[in-house]
Design a protein around this nucleic acid. Structure first.
Lengths: 252, 252
DNA sequence: CGTGGGGTTGATATAGTTCAAACTCTGTGG
DNA sequence: CCACAGAGTTTGAACTATATCAACCCCACG
């Protein structure tokens, strides 16, 4: 099971910082450290715990009847997960890198606390709303868009989520297979697309997981799936720049 | 703008029933009736209201820079929407059928109420969790799966969400274009796929929006994207039945 | 040094997009 | 009341992006 270690994924730690969970909730938490390949929970398990990833990385996925899987989200430091409106989980969560640390919050204790502490309730609601928005953005990406758009947007997303500052260095904690199941394209297509982006000078690969973004513009140029009001805010010539064979549809 | 009326979409009313919002929240609500084509809110609008659709139908969509749009959700009676973690909306909501009724809840009053009334807080959280699960299921559908799977799953979803009892009659409140933008496939593909399903005896079309499901099994047979533990529960021979040219991948 | 998982690259097949045209239905105006 | 108009829908034909199949490379590890 355990694969060999790639250059220990340089994902920042977010201990108390970005997550912004009230202290009253934090005292309920238990700390756990897990190894690569271990699962936090599986589809069908009782959903009696919420989690927050402190360091490392994981993914949440849904297994399908025919053996395929869809990775629904990559979990990075600060992310809250394990929410479920039922008694049992519909998805599974698996650890991507050795030594991933997470905090566990007993669900019913936390819910009880939320009935008493309005701050806790608000924080939870806020986290849920954020999750909804992230899912919606991801739907846009999954739905439309071609492989170049998907991979470009993926790199930008990961860059934004994992980098400490505005670094252009990017270390992916997941394999090409994982990326493929996240973007819902074949591994081969992921690989080919990265090669294309490399050829266009958008990125440079140190090794398969470690890359540097050389030209964000090229990546952004492919992402037509930006929401309009955001795109509009960028002013100027933001029409998807012609990269040689671009064929953005006529603007309605 | 206003298109002609199709046989007034037979969508059930869910007045106080399924929604299960606490009475204390309900007293804040305002009732509004809207016509087809009107928008409830647009991307960029201030998000100071939550909504619940009482009767009729609407859709939530995200407009993209190149003119395409992704329909993120169809809203049917009982559905709560308008949640937003920011101050402004990232998506738009448009009415699909004339005379759609919705209730409006002032966001900040509702949030204040949630800090006092734990029932309100719990109901909101629960609704948010449900929304997350629905979005995840939809991601699975969008991501993988071919046109037949998408359309079949769509019909089953709509049948489940709109029918009062276990009726096999299905009246779609939306156009083929809307379906296409929901499933992220071309209109032509939607049309062709429906024709295929008709030819296979899965459905019968009264008119373009009104159909009857003749053989649920055929539809379900295409939906390999069922989650495993659900599919497993169905026991027996649930391997995607051979419909002539099925080509489910080998089971890992 | 061999093994095996991950990754890349190539050749081929195909599902779905795109372009184009015809058809259906409903509402409108002469 | 019928003809016209136009959106919505269906069907056809050609094209293409991506999946699929297959080979190969690379590197860590035993």
């Amino acid at each position: 099971m355990a694969m060999r270690m790639h250059s220990a994924a340089a994902v920042r730690n977010v201990d108390e910082s970005s997550a912004s969970l009230p202290e009253s909730l934090e005292v309920l938490a238990t700390r756990t450290e897990l190894a690569e390949g271990q699962s936090v929970y599986r589809a069908g398990d009782v959903a009696d715990t919420w989690y927050r990833l402190v360091s490392g990385a994981a993914f949440e996925c849904i297994q399908m009847a025919d053996g395929r899987r869809q990775i629904v989200d990559f979990l990075l430091p600060g992310d809250l997960f394990g929410f479920c409106s039922h008694a049992r989980h519909e998805s599974s969560v698996e650890i991507l890198v050795d030594g991933t640390v997470l905090k566990e919050y007993p669900r019913y204790q936390a819910e009880d606390l939320a009935t008493i502490d309005a701050d806790v309730a608000r924080a939870l609601r806020q986290q849920a709303f954020k999750a909804i928005e992230r899912l919606q953005s991801r739907m846009v990406l999954l739905g439309r868009t071609n492989a170049l758009e998907k991979v470009s947007a993926f790199l930008l997303e990961m860059s934004e989520r994992t980098s400490v500052g505005a670094s252009d260095d990017l270390v992916l904690p997941m394999s090409r297979y994982d990326v493929a199941d996240y973007l819902a394209i074949a591994v081969e297509t992921v690989s080919r697309t990265l090669t294309t982006l490399k050829a266009r000078g958008a990125i440079v690969l140190a090794n398969s997981r470690h890359m540097r973004i050389m030209d964000r513009r090229v990546l952004e140029g492919w992402v037509a799936s930006r929401k309009v009001h955001l795109a509009a805010a960028e002013a100027g010539q933001q029409r998807p720049m012609d990269l040689g064979f671009g064929r953005a549809r006529p603007i309605a």
